[in-house]
Design a protein around this nucleic acid. Structure first.
Length: 271
DNA sequence: AGGAAAACCTGCGTGC
DNA sequence: TGCACGCAGGTTTTCC
């Protein structure tokens, strides 16, 4: 579910509620996520102050003096802040407890997400070590992208979803970015001309930036930290629009599986 | 060794 | 109505 814009929207929603607050502990109802939730999670967190809520790629990082809590929302995860804990619903797996009865609740039907603790600098963690630069940072340049793309014949859509190549772009924003750049998703990465790479780089940044501004995309069940939906899907050009007319030229939007994932494009606007 | 496929898990829509 | 099937915003692991 959540790609970079949804994770960033969540981060912005919870940061002010958490930063500077002392955690009293945690309640773990379901420890079997992508990886087991640390058995001593509550003990580790109790008494610690949340120094900062950060994001790296699609991971959320809660920084403490003694380490970092790494969280990933997987396909169906969401985090919500409550001043007072409401009744527990199915798939409400974890609560982080704050003073005064407030909680941060982790909800994830498919349990593809994870919550892990690390004492070491998080950028050295095995899950974060091989991530590409942040796509909205100065490190992510057309030149950097060009050097990477030249080395593979994989479809460009598959490549920009590979987190060691481009970070934060998932299945929705991959199709949307390629539409915006006017590039077919099936093109071998190494076949892109330099000006196409410049367009793709700009399209990725613009798509992610606009999606963050819209509060992310809600197709099924994504909600932000206040329980509200995102609105980017209203402006999707191709994603989930198979057979519908292209918003630019009215040509029916195409759908094909690429590396097992639904991929959408316009035959007239993209080449 | 790069790249494709399988694996993890639950819920929902569709069609028989 | 019930059931089998396919599909879903992600990423690691396994298998060529």
């Amino acid at each position: 579910m959540p790609e970079l814009p949804e994770v960033e929207t969540t981060r912005r929603g919870i940061a002010a509620h958490l930063e500077g607050q002392v955690l009293l502990g945690a309640v773990v109802r379901q420890p079997a996520l992508r990886w087991p939730v640390p058995a001593l999670l509550s003990t580790v967190l109790a008494g610690q102050v949340v120094l900062a809520v950060e994001r790296r790629a699609k991971y959320l990082l809660l920084r403490f003096a003694r380490g970092t809590l790494l969280m990933h929302l997987g396909m169906s995860g969401s985090l919500r802040f409550y001043d007072q804990a409401p009744p527990v619903r199915p798939h409400d797996h974890i609560d982080l407890l704050l003073a005064g009865g407030a909680i941060l609740r982790y909800h994830d039907p498919r349990r593809f997400g994870c919550i892990l603790w690390t004492d070491a600098p998080p950028e050295q963690h095995p899950l974060l070590r091989h991530l590409a630069p942040e796509p909205l940072s100065a490190e992510f340049t057309p030149n950097w992208l060009q050097k990477k793309l030249a080395s593979t014949q994989r479809p460009i859509k598959v490549v920009i979803m590979d987190q060691s190549w481009v970070v934060g772009v998932g299945n929705i924003y991959a199709s949307e970015s390629l539409f915006r750049a006017g590039i077919l998703p099936t093109r071998p990465a190494a076949s892109l001309a330099p000006e196409e790479i410049v367009r793709l780089h700009a399209a990725i940044q613009a798509t992610l930036t606009e999606a963050i501004a819209a509060g992310g995309t809600t197709l099924r069940d994504y909600v932000n930290s206040e329980g509200r939906e995102g609105f980017f899907q209203i402006q999707c050009f191709v994603y989930a629009r198979a057979g519908e007319p292209c918003r630019i030229c009215a040509t029916p939007i195409q759908l094909q599986k690429l590396a097992g994932r639904a991929t959408y494009w316009c035959n007239h606007c993209q080449s």
